[in-house]
Design a protein around this nucleic acid. Structure first.
Lengths: 116, 116
DNA sequence: TTTAATCGGTACGGAACCGAAACGATAGAC
DNA sequence: GTCTATCGTTTCGGTTCCGTACCGATTAAA
């Protein structure tokens, strides 16, 4: 079932959601960081640095730095792939799952408030 | 008419929209910049630096810098308020309106692709 | 007219980020 | 065992951003 939404509603939804993120206590993530976070939590594993870099169309250090920052925030973690120790597997965390869950609930509640 | 959307759909929608922004040619705006841009284009004027800072819960220099950056990109412009020359009024631009319009269309098309 | 309040912008030191390039570690080919 | 390719990370110089504090300009109050 596709979601029915008008351009103006889309913008208003994104607007209020962005405002909530900026105003919130948690440090607001950059667009790149958010894209990485959602990729990890919405797409089935495994996730590697190289794979994420290709998916986002950015260089590897961008991913490494974003993982450093979000790792420090506890939103995700890294571990070596035991099968191929060159790889690093990006894993979900409990805190990260809660964060993403709150994000989804936030959008839902903002969407419910939308007028035509 | 409120928009009906589930948490998972919300996250998938934000995910694909973020990916589009990151992958796009245009430099991807930060969450704060996007919040400012949408505030200016969705809320009736006038918009001042101080007002935006209060609305977003950030300091003035954050707004000044964001206006510098997005002004350089042609997404909005500044001009002194002739009524009270201490104020700076933030104004919309043609390029900015087109950018925001594309953003709305992008979300709509991504929403249409969503499965349950 | 002097004083105080209010605007946006700037200076500052520190932090995070950028892409390109080089690096060590690991794995596979020969 | 020796190359070679492929990982993720680090280094590099340069840019952008952060909040605090201060500045010049403008307005309003005394």
């Amino acid at each position: 079932m596709a979601v029915q939404i008008s351009p103006l509603q889309s913008l208003r939804l994104w607007h209020s959601a962005s405002l909530d993120m900026v105003r919130g206590d948690e440090p607001d993530l950059s667009t790149r960081q958010l894209a990485i976070l959602l990729e990890v939590y919405l797409v089935p594993p495994p996730h590697t640095v190289r794979g994420l870099a290709a998916k986002l169309g950015v260089t590897k250090p961008v991913i490494t730095r974003a993982l450093d920052t979000m790792g420090r925030l506890g939103l995700l973690s890294r571990s070596r792939d035991p099968k191929d120790r060159r790889n690093v597997l990006i894993k979900r965390t409990v805190d990260g799952a809660l964060f993403v869950e709150r994000l989804g609930d936030l959008v839902v509640s903002r969407a419910a408030e939308l007028a035509t």
